[in-house]
Amino acid sequence: MGAWYWWTLIGMAIVTYIPRAVPLTFLEGKELPPVVSGVLRNIPYAVLGALIFPAILYVQEGNLLFGLIGAIVAFTLAILFSNLMVIVLGTIGVLAIYSLVF
């Protein structure tokens, strides 16, 4: 790759950093209107819903069943256990066995 690669990389780094840093630094110490902070408090749970679905179904291209099984196992483990590591490793384990068998 030539010099253009490094310019592209610098450009990518800047436009990735701005959305991360601007709100955290500019909003420091600022009291937002209750309506706005109410909406912001809702963001984490809404984001999780959008991050999980429908992407979880497509973790293996062209194999919807694989993602579906993964989703069912993850939700089941999450209901049974609250330990994050158990949920993550447990889901990986079940899917590893599944892909070895099928």
Binding site: Y45, L48, G49, L51, I52, A55, I56, V59, Q60, F66, G67, G70, A71, V73, A74, F75, L77, A78, I79, S82, L84, I87, V88, G90, T91, I92, G93, L95, A96, Y98, S99, L100
Partner: peptide
């Protein structure tokens, strides 16, 4: 291959694990 496939679920399992409780 089997491990690569299984591990591709990891981040989603984590999101589920953060959301459900």
């Amino acid at each position: 291959q089997f491990l690569q496939a299984a591990m591709s679920i990891a981040l989603y399992a984590m999101f589920v694990g953060l959301l459900v409780p």
